[in-house]
Design a protein around this nucleic acid. Structure first.
Lengths: 211, 211, 211, 211
DNA sequence: ACAGGCGGGACTTCCCGTTTAT
DNA sequence: ATAAACGGGAAGTCCCGCCTGT
């Protein structure tokens, strides 16, 4: 007669956890942090194993290649981050102008509180990877597009004055994303959140609103 | 005890160029191209040797580490490129607005002619390296600053209407650099120069001029 | 982006040994032999891979740096060798004098049988490494100390005549180790085991015993 | 008509010294120091160039290979050092015993004053190189032999008691050299000059003299 | 005599991916 | 699912020696 608890006992042999969801989460979090801090190529799989307390077997089980891990980070960590910090706030703001400026301000405040400017995760990876690999490029372009579309949609919902059609909303939304991305690049290279605020003030003049 | 170098058998006679200036130039050009196309970490020193037709000895003689080569590329290739494509045209343009928009337009046209968007060399390297190494960061921040200052100076020379003091010129110049940098990031990730043009149109509305 | 490892094509099936203990043993044996024969710095990691039939991956897995390998060789090969050739024989000998001279004699006989004098592994590495690296120095000093202490302990157990206290035993034991080490250096440089025997004869006059 | 001072003027162009004797001396001194401190294989030619302020051309001019430099260091720096610290003092001492013990004592005092034990230059190089290369081995064996012979000669000049013939003097001299070499190895590995003194006290009991 | 650019390869380290074993 | 040994090769660095030019 088989002992019914054998499996469970075996599972806890040594220090194995056998919690695939948690393991996968830890790998993604560790990788996302490392890719953001050091970049994709400068991060070795071994570092992720060490920092995330996972062994090669576990890592390979969840992500067969580094590229697969990179794509998962983009889709499951970077995209939600953009959604959370940009799309949701802009959608729920009173006006597009108010929402956009509030995001700039909140991010600038975050940077100052943290004392260091890590840059935008999407842009960091986009610059490093989008030329070299088209799968990465496509994944990141999808995020940029969703980001821009969310802003454009919010802009279109405004009761605006004359002559601002759909094309204007798209172009303006693109410009908002571009301004933010570039301002973040400047802030990161200068380690100075002030550049983000200076850019926000200029952008404000362009956005429809009470000025 | 082994004598590893056994004389080279007098082979390869006369193959030496003995032109250090040319050798150094070729290394820098090759490295600048490779860093731009594939990124710093994704480029191997051996690739640079092969593509630039230099041996390890020559490369090591001129640049003892990859970092030294990277810094030289930034200072001797990236900085002059920014000078040439941005600073000189903006300085010599009739108005700041005209100069800035002309640069956007020319770069967009270049991209379309080339059929691919490689991105801005400075921003590409800035995103990959500025967090990881402060020497790189400082070298690139100096270029960003010079770039912004040149635009700010041009803006201040305009006979403008009310309320645009020095601080406004600096902030606006920062914003110009940020918009361009971010628009280029979007264009690169989407492989679409249109995003650069769309951003230029929006920026135009902010710049002093005949509108 | 290049995927460097393209699958190994399922070739070399079944070639893996998967015997970490045996692999580690082979690495240490090969390294110990090479360090002894050619010295630490003159031995390349690739030589160890080739001679020990281990791949880079396996070597790196067991010993992440050459220094780690060197320390392991000292602790797991050199120390046991001293234990076996000196400490055990001296401890089990009838008298200290008899034990010490027997060791000298046996080693001299070994050298003559082998036809070459390789020197004492501990002294060889000690001279090459103890100045440059304090971890190596400490590891080797521990062996020298254990060696001396074992001889001193044996000396103290003798029913000696007048005035030989603990300090004398320690000093004499130190001198035994020094004489052997130096005699081995002379024998190695002269490739002449006779120098070892000549030194043993002189040392004998100093040791308590029937003379 | 040729200008007579042209050569001298040309000679001082830039910072060239054109003092071959001084250049050669500086190379040898630098190399001797580096070989002593780090070992032969661990010292690169480039280090010698940097530390000795000589260029590759000058170094290669005086010593076509590293091995030639190593042999020159042995013959022109190590051998004179042994002559100076051992042979001359032993020859000029009142008795062999007095001379030998004085050398031990002076060297121990030197080590303590310096605060670090660098070891015996001859033994350091002998252990690293004598197995690998027979030219080095022969050069160093010649120094060991001269050293021993000088001591043996001094011992033979003593009006000794019974039964100490030539062979005894040679064997005892060999033992003196061995004791010193080994004691120095112990002192170096333990960074403790006391081991040298302890060995000297034991050796004293063996040397003919007032005891 | 000396300066230094250069050739070509070996060095240690570390990479990513795979396989065996639990 | 997880752990860890392992394969095979590429990474950046640095080596010694040579060679041209002053």
């Amino acid at each position: 007669m088989k002992d019914r608890v054998t499996a469970a006992e075996t599972a806890n042999r040594g220090k194995r956890l056998y919690d695939p969801v948690e393991t996968r989460r830890r790998i993604l979090d560790t990788a996302a942090g490392a890719f953001q801090a050091r970049g994709y190529h400068a991060t070795g799989m071994h570092e992720i194993m060490r920092d995330g307390r996972v062994t090669g077997g576990a890592l390979y089980h969840h992500f067969p290649t580094k590229k697969a891990l990179g794509l998962a980070v983009i889709r499951e960590r970077v995209a939600p981050a953009v959604e959370e910090t940009w799309i949701v706030p802009v959608r729920s703001a009173a006006t597009a102008q108010a929402g956009i400026l509030a995001v700039f301000e909140q991010i600038a405040a975050d940077l100052e509180r943290r004392g260091a400017v890590m840059g935008c995760p999407l842009n960091n990876l986009a610059h490093e990877l989008s030329l070299a690999d088209s799968d990465f490029r496509a994944a990141m372009d999808a995020i940029f597009t969703a980001w821009r579309d969310a802003i454009a949609e919010r802009l279109r919902s405004e009761p605006v004055a004359a002559g601002s059609g759909d094309r204007d909303a798209d172009a303006l939304a693109t410009f908002v994303v571009a301004s933010y991305s570039g301002a973040m690049a400047l802030a990161k290279t200068g380690q100075d959140a002030g550049r983000l605020r200076a850019s926000a003030r200029q952008l404000a003049r362009l956005l429809p609103g009470p000025d």
